[in-house]
Design a protein around this nucleic acid. Structure first.
Lengths: 245, 245
DNA sequence: CGAGTTCTTGACTCGCCTCAATTTGAGTGG
DNA sequence: CCACTCAAATTGAGGCGAGTCAAGAACTCG
């Protein structure tokens, strides 16, 4: 795997028509606080495949994801690279109490970030209890999600894992809104290759491929291309994976 | 599995000679804050096997673990009970933004808790940025740990998983101090049955048992009884599991 | 000491991994 | 536009490790 260097456009952030303004960490801000916040925030575009930060890098900034998908990964003791989790808007990127990042982040699709310099962010953190609460809440949610995923890896067979992952991806990539065939219809681009899917699921590339074919045969998914997926009924897919919504 | 009801002694907490005073959430407290804190804290003894709280219970209090081991568990969509994690002193128990607990907690050994009523704790949380920080830090650490565990479940074969778990348990249960055969020597009581070990590792009871026997044959562990373990060299055990310290 | 539970060990089966051969698709140059 | 190349994905054949089923041993408790 070739590692492309980060290429970033930097723009001033405009909070008023920001996509994550509803439920990002800044959702509760207003007045002076929002002013300060947007003053230090910078928009950054990261093309697909580019690294955002690496395990061990000094922490210089944090970021909210505005659009796109970010993959977090880590190198194990035995030297293998593994995906830890996928992050979607309005997730918060890179928070740590350490001076160095504890995992790597890369753009799985083209990504828009809203970045905040470390010092300024910490200063605001001291001023705003609400910001504290929000970021803590996101962390708690991430912990919940990781635990669920861990349970799934422990129990489920390969077919159910693949079905479960596709269902989760469908939901997070956004169910198609109104005016679609059925309310449970979804269509999305896979942010990961077969190899990465396999890694994330604790399976091999071949097993993943076989199970995708099986899902196709069972009419639970359709592939437009190898990366473009249609899920006619996300609920049915979840049921196939023995998962709750 | 029979569920025993909670049986609790309640005592006033004495912070001055508390075992987790060094690194618990209260570690930075002093003066008035410590006063307030210890005023609302109550010590509670929970015998082995007793439930501390259950998934779905209303959150009425939080707690620090003073001694013993607590197991957190969760019921999946398919109705199976699974262990999420083990918690040791000075871990913090039950924190959530919801009104209901999101998992169950039970005493894996006899447990001493330092409990705080929900309201009072939240009030203090608003007064003390440091308390906020500490509890957040513990949550972050828990997330890190869960991610590591997830990676391990994805990659390792059964033998390595068992070795890894024993190494972790040895470390957390405390390496024997000075005056022991070797600095890496550890001895501890397994807080889980074979069935629970298997669940936690995503294996079957039989596979766990076989691998424990194998570890014995390889001289990496000794069993005094089925639950009492001696690890002559924790480092060697970690190496066997391909894990870093 | 016996009854029940927990743990260990063995024999067999099955699902996932491994290795290998195609097939598909994207990018490039003639 | 098509032929070519290379990477990614699919499909197949076979082996092995962990699960399943079952019997026996060890520990717990009355």
């Amino acid at each position: 795997m070739t590692i492309k260097m980060t290429f970033a456009h930097q723009l001033y952030a405009r909070c008023d028509n920001c996509g994550v303004r509803q439920d990002g960490i800044c959702s509760s801000f207003s007045g002076e606080l929002l002013e300060k916040f947007s003053g230090m925030a910078r928009k950054r575009l990261v093309p697909q495949g580019c690294t955002i930060f690496r395990d061990g890098d000094e922490v210089t900034s944090f970021a909210s994801i505005l659009s796109g998908v970010v993959k977090l990964s880590k190198t194990t003791a035995s030297g293998e690279f593994h995906i830890i989790t996928l992050m979607y808007p309005p997730d918060f990127l890179g928070y740590t109490f350490e001076d160095e990042h504890r995992c790597s982040a890369a753009a799985a699709t083209d990504v828009e970030l809203c970045t905040y310099p470390r010092r300024g962010f910490f200063r605001l953190l001291q001023e705003s209890a609400e910001l504290n609460r929000r970021i803590f809440e996101l962390t708690t949610r991430e912990l919940e999600f990781t635990r669920e995923w861990m349970l799934m890896l422990r129990c489920k067979a390969s077919y159910q894992r693949v079905a479960g992952l596709f269902a989760v991806l469908a939901k997070r990539s956004g169910l198609s809104g109104a005016g679609t065939p059925t309310p449970n219809h979804a269509q999305f681009i896979l942010p990961l290759s077969r190899f990465e899917l396999a890694d994330y699921l604790g399976l091999t590339l071949e097993t993943v491929s076989r199970n995708i074919s099986q899902l196709k045969r069972n009419g639970l998914i359709e592939l437009l291309t190898v990366r473009e997926v249609i899920v006619p009924d996300v609920g049915r897919l979840l049921a196939e994976a023995d998962m709750r919504g």
